[in-house]
């Protein structure tokens, strides 16, 4: 008797089960669906190692006329001979959209990807913001360069026409100042 028990224990392997549920589900229905799935495994005498519900997530393509779904990832330790029964039961059930049973490789460490995905989304946002900032900085730099170029052009133009313009202006200024002095010196005008 003891030997048979021992063999069963050694035969148990870790299996990964990913299930896709349709998104518009009420909380009761969702819990019922999860209980249903867990029930299949419990019937087979499986031991739950980890459960990771990702929650609502968009699908890359419509499955069963649905654009969004709920992902749930289970890790079970169970007898490989009962895998077929579970697979068939999952295929028959109407609540599950897609399911997948996988044997993870040796030395696989169970990680929660739901949290990683959220952190990645946040980081991605920051990355996009950084890109925008860089773009703005580039535009500013270009504007500054343009302004510099325009200033240089103006200076060059000034240097190009020094002989004509300033003399006239000087003369005009002299004339203006003389007239102004005259006007000021005239006592006849009353303001």
């Amino acid at each position: 008797m003891t030997t048979s028990d021992d063999t069963i224990v050694t035969d148990d392997r870790v299996y990964e089960c990913c299930v896709l549920l349709p998104f518009p589900l009420s909380q009761k229905e969702e819990q019922d669906a999860m209980k249903e799935i867990e029930g299949y495994f419990e019937e087979a005498g499986a031991k739950q190692m980890a459960k990771d519900s990702w929650g609502r997530r968009g699908l890359a393509y419509p499955i069963g006329d649905r654009e969004e779904g709920i992902f749930v990832v289970y890790h079970y330790e169970m007898d490989p001979s009962k895998l077929k029964e579970i697979d068939q039961q999952m295929q028959i059930s109407t609540t599950i959209l897609r399911h997948m049973l996988i044997k993870p490789p040796k030395g696989y460490q169970i990680a929660k990807y739901s949290e990683e995905y959220e952190t990645w989304l946040k980081e991605r946002k920051t990355v996009s913001e950084q890109k925008e900032e860089e773009k703005e900085a580039e535009i500013k730099r270009k504007v500054a360069e343009k302004a510099k170029r325009q200033a240089k052009k103006v200076e060059e133009e000034k240097k190009a026409r020094p002989p004509t313009v300033p003399e006239k202006s000087v003369i005009e200024e002299d004339k203006l100042s003389e007239e102004l002095e005259k006007l000021i010196s005239d006592d006849e005008i009353d303001i």
């Binding site: 990913c18 890359a60 393509y61 499955i63 897609r98 997948m100």
Partner: peptide, 11 residues
């Protein structure tokens, strides 16, 4: 291929 089947990546 697995991700495509589960609807995470597009075919």
């Amino acid at each position: 291929q697995r991700a495509r089947f589960m609807g995470m990546l597009a075919y």
